[in-house]
Amino acid sequence: MIDNDKVNFHFDIDGDNFTTAGEASVKIKKALRQMGFSADTIRRVSVAMYEGEINMVIHADGGEADVNVYPNKIEIILADKGPGIPDIEKAMQAGYSTAPDDIRSLGFGAGMGLPNMKKYTDSIDIQTEVGVGTTVTMVVNV
């Protein structure tokens, strides 16, 4: 969908299927490559989005992802109706995780999700309410 100078990609993230988590990120990676973005930009966007996608699957039973590609920036909006984040400061700490053991056995739950999202983006905004949901908006400048 093209809206003036913005290209939007929308994905429904399936909360039941952990093994397919990451498909939206891989699709974005391919689309950005076709659009001619640099390898560094593509890596930053796709890693940040993958972490967010995994978070939504682990904690929030899925959600929706929108990626808006502008000429000078890429915006990633991840919205879920999950349990919310009671303590954002803690959640942002590297190594802090509330992921269950079965998720850890797959190699996740290292407490690096939000720290990676912050590290790889130019800005991150988290709107969250316990019991209502969380919306994470990240921007990578091009």
Binding site: T20, G22, V26, R43, Y50
Partner: peptide
């Protein structure tokens, strides 16, 4: 030593 499906996604995204 990880060999599940997510390894492929991480390899792809980390390039």
């Amino acid at each position: 030593i990880m060999s599940n499906l997510n390894v492929v996604a991480v390899a792809s995204l980390a390039d």
